[in-house]
Amino acid sequence: MKALMSVGALIGVLGLLMLIGMIFGVVPSNTVRLVEGYMPMQVLSELAVFVAGFTGLSYLANSMGMAIPRFWQGVLFWSFVQTYLKFRIYPPIPFSVRAMYGVVSFVAVFMWVSANEEDWKKFRQPILNVLDANTGFHKALRTLYLILLPILIGGFSFLTMKPSVDEPIELRTVHPAPPASTKVHGKTYTLQTSQNPYRVNLEGKYDQAYSNKLIVEQGMGRLMAPNANPWDDKAEGYLKYVREGGEIFFQNCHFCHGDNLNGRGLHAFAFNPIPANFTDPGTIAQLQETFIFWRVAKGGIGLPNEGFPWASVMPPWEQHLTTDEIWKVILFEYWHTGYYPRTWD
């Protein structure tokens, strides 16, 4: 047990030093990189390692007779989580989400320190000591709080009420609900049931299972599936349509949506918000092909009321592309990102 806790403590100390070093630039900030695509599990795993590390540290401190009071354990752990969220995760997490995480971690710390009566007594003892002020030090501390707290609250109120020149927050609906059907070039498409006419097998029949096998694999390499190179001259059927879609994409879309379809094209940063990142699992991977068809055809101008504020300047592509071209470019987007369009069967 002691050995296990010692290893935990070692990990805890190393982790803390690394984090502090990276925050203050002593250690290069990319020493332990958060790898795109693996970040979500990486973050949770790192937090788990830190918890194990802190447990080990606490155990060692106890063994050496230098136990850290439960109150300070709680305060320090909560502060650590906030520091981690603020400085470790990049790109930075918006304040609204950090505030949510902050409240949850506060509740978690409370649950931990008050889970049993003994711990709860230990935790609140320092607070009661200050409130009771039986010693000179505590009396001074209580007086200090009496002065500081109103100043802090006043300062907070002042900052909240102070007029700001920042643009206001907009709660934008990223995926507004589509209409039941849409009319493009004189033909009506029912979004629930329509299919991409180019997602076909070698016999020319709609076959998503077939096309799913030929998409770019997900993961770090994003390699093409074997014998599934759309730019091969012999490519036929689905792969040929992917190539044609790709050509349309690079003639029309990549200026904004980027070579890697990650929303960071040549002109992307002229817009606010920047164009959609198709490689993110929250965009096209969540949607039916017909939804994309509707969005591409109608553009930002065709967004429904629900999509307000319409922060999209995408042109209504039905004015520039044929229906077939739109379907092909959608085919390419799914192929390139390695995602499958949503289906309901």
């Binding site: 790109p91 920047i274 993110d280």
Partner: peptide, 19 residues
């Protein structure tokens, strides 16, 4: 759908956050 200021949106580099 994250609530964020335009400045945060820019700092994040788009609507989608990798984590």
């Amino acid at each position: 759908t994250i609530v964020m200021t335009p400045a945060e949106l820019k700092a994040m580099g788009g609507q989608q956050h990798p984590v």
